[in-house]
Design a protein around this nucleic acid. Sequence first.
RNA 1: GGGUCGGUGCCCGAGAGGACAAAGGGAGCGGGCUGUAAACCCGCCGGCUUAGCCUACGGAGGUUCAAAUCCUCCCCGGCCCA
Length: 421
Amino acid sequence: MSGNTIFDDLRSRSLLYDYTDEKSLKDLLLAGPVTLYHGIDPTQSSLHVGNLVGVLLAKRFQQAGHRPLLLLGGATGLVGDPSGRTSERNLLDVETLNDNIAGLQSQLSGLIDFDGTNAARLVNNLDWTRSVTLIDFLRDIGKHVTVNQMLTKDSVRIRMAGSHGISFTEFTYMLFQAFDYQWLFKNFNCQLQVGGSDQWGNITAGIDLVRRLEGQAVHGLTWPLMTRADGTKFGKTVDGAVWLDPKRTLPYEFHQYFINTDDRDVQRLLLQLTLLPVSEIADIMANHSHEPHKRSAQGVLADEVCGLVHGHDTVKSVKLAAELLFGGTEFTGEALSAVQGVVPETKISSSIVDALEPLVDMLAFSGVCSSKSEARRTIQAGGIRVNGRRIRSADESVTPVVSRFLLLQRGRKLHHLFVLE
RNA sequence: GGGUCGGUGCCCGAGAGGACAAAGGGAGCGGGCUGUAAACCCGCCGGCUUAGCCUACGGAGGUUCAAAUCCUCCCCGGCCCA
């Protein structure tokens, strides 16, 4: 893929927001493999779907023949990036930070190619900032940046205007990131930094620093913030973020999150979160708009994203489970075993089942209902099904165990599987 | 520091001695319709050993047969004055 095509591909996917001079950036990408970097905030031990745009963008560049550096900001985590935030961050301790970095690292290795000719590479800015002394920093970096300039950045201005202010630590953050860029330029000839649109200020700070210190013009590119048509935050559910870690967000829930994508968002998400060619997405959308009720576009989106993250075998079992939970497939032991591992489950010995016999107990015990009172009410309202059979009375016992499985359903979307052993 | 108004369930907000687990709205949950949607309609919406009981109206005491409602002290917030 030529430099033109990657750039234009990003444009046709609405993945371009701000970028440095288009012509020279395109020329650079055409001239040969370019080393670029993308920083990821290590404030958590797992990526969430919001991080996916950036990681996939790095992958797109890699597939186009360029070399991505993924920066896990160890130093960032210790200092705190004020961008996109209205209040001061809590600082992480080193131990948490290292756990986080380890977790992120293993997830990234599943998504991006770390071998081959243009292998991606993980870097940690703690490695090169740790030994820099305050004097070094003030002389070598601070001297080249004016506070006047720093004050014009949105990330700072917004916090200056707010009631909580901004600490000197966070104020200084952009110099850290600028320093990263300069260091990566010097040591890896990194000439492009990519990030979400809230990173633009930090990116340009780095570009300026490289120009001053190295006399070289390097580049920056940002993508637009992810939004949702219904106004809620992308990647968030009422239960919190949608994580890539299957222990935090079950693959089934992950898949469902995308199945439930609003029609108004589905095309953009296909473009931005999958690696499908733009032309193919056009076909998918054409097909979708003929029969929107079948939501074929959502199906493709969910399969693709879930496949990238969890692998295609997982997608298969997740879809089997969804068929059972929504499709009215018969509740055979075989079908139920497909549900195992993709919805929340409790392993339980049959003696405990006997002890918990009344349905209300099981509902409360499993967390399907938050209290026994709520369980009773929900049963009353006809909201509970056991192995597919709607329960009308709280006194009903839960005898119909199919092979070793007992599936509780609340409403259409909440499930809990008891596995007897 | 003085004065004053206020603090009610997840949120907003009524209630001013018994009829109060506390109006109304929002959020949430369940059902119906639908596209595992939106909109709309219906029901639910503190807990439990559920025809009953327990816990709750900022906190601690008190008055009363009975207190979210009255009294005392304390804590917190708004506004006005210094």
